[in-house]
Amino acid sequence: MTVEYSLADAEHLPYVRHGLLDVHLDVHTQSGPSDAENHFEARLQTAAAHPGWTTAIGYQAGRAVGYCHGFSLPADTDWWSNVIVPLPEYVTRESGRRTAVLSEIVVRKPWRGTGVAAQLHDIWLSLRPEERVTLLVDSTIGGGALQRVCEKWGYRSVANHRAPGDPTVYTAMIRPVHRP
């Protein structure tokens, strides 16, 4: 069976929320809905409230098998304020149309390694109007495998990033939205 893909924006979130939540709970919890559901709902609502929020979702036989989502960085963002070593202004300057943030990409286990994640990523990027996209990677995941996948997709590390109160140091990565 083939995976079919669709895109949605914040206006259509009520129609796709259940599929996103179903995938999230399948991947991130072993015991079913609980605080994980509430935490995900809060994060999803926060992300979807940002300008330019969109999601790409993969379905097989009507069941969501993976998704990715993100939004546009506003001109007054504090996104770059949590980098450990400050970056030059030409890297951190935002206009509200310069940078998209890939917030999350999640694929159910049976579909990992099949190209679904790459397809979701490419479909999500295909309609982004920004010139570049950024994401944060926990480079300890899979012994660095996740970061290597991002590098294969064209992302390059620009800084280490740590949010207040979060002990995890992430790698901030950037790539052009549309590669030559």
Rank of each mutant, 00 (worst) to 15 (best):
H69I: 07
T54P: 01
L136N: 15
P14M: 02
T2I: 14
H39C: 04
A64G: 12
R156Y: 01
E4K: 10
R132T: 14
A48R: 04
P51E: 09
C68K: 00
A145E: 10
E37H: 11
A49T: 06
W124Y: 15
S103C: 00
V158Y: 12
H12C: 01
Y155I: 02
T99W: 02
E41A: 14
G144F: 04
V137W: 07
A48H: 05
R128E: 05
A117F: 07
Q60H: 12
P110N: 05
T29M: 01
L20N: 02
K152N: 11
H28K: 02
D138M: 08
L146R: 04
P86R: 02
P110A: 07
P86C: 12
L135K: 04
H28L: 07
V65Q: 02
H18A: 09
F71D: 11
L135T: 15
Y155A: 02
Y59L: 14
A47G: 09
W153M: 13
W80E: 00
T29D: 10
G96C: 12
D9V: 02
V16A: 00
F71A: 04
D22T: 01
L13I: 03
P180G: 10
V85C: 00
T2R: 14
H28Y: 14
R97G: 11
D76R: 00
R17I: 00
W124N: 07
E104W: 02
G96H: 06
Q45G: 13
A10D: 03
L21S: 01
V158G: 04
A159C: 09
A64L: 08
P14F: 06
G62I: 03
I123T: 15
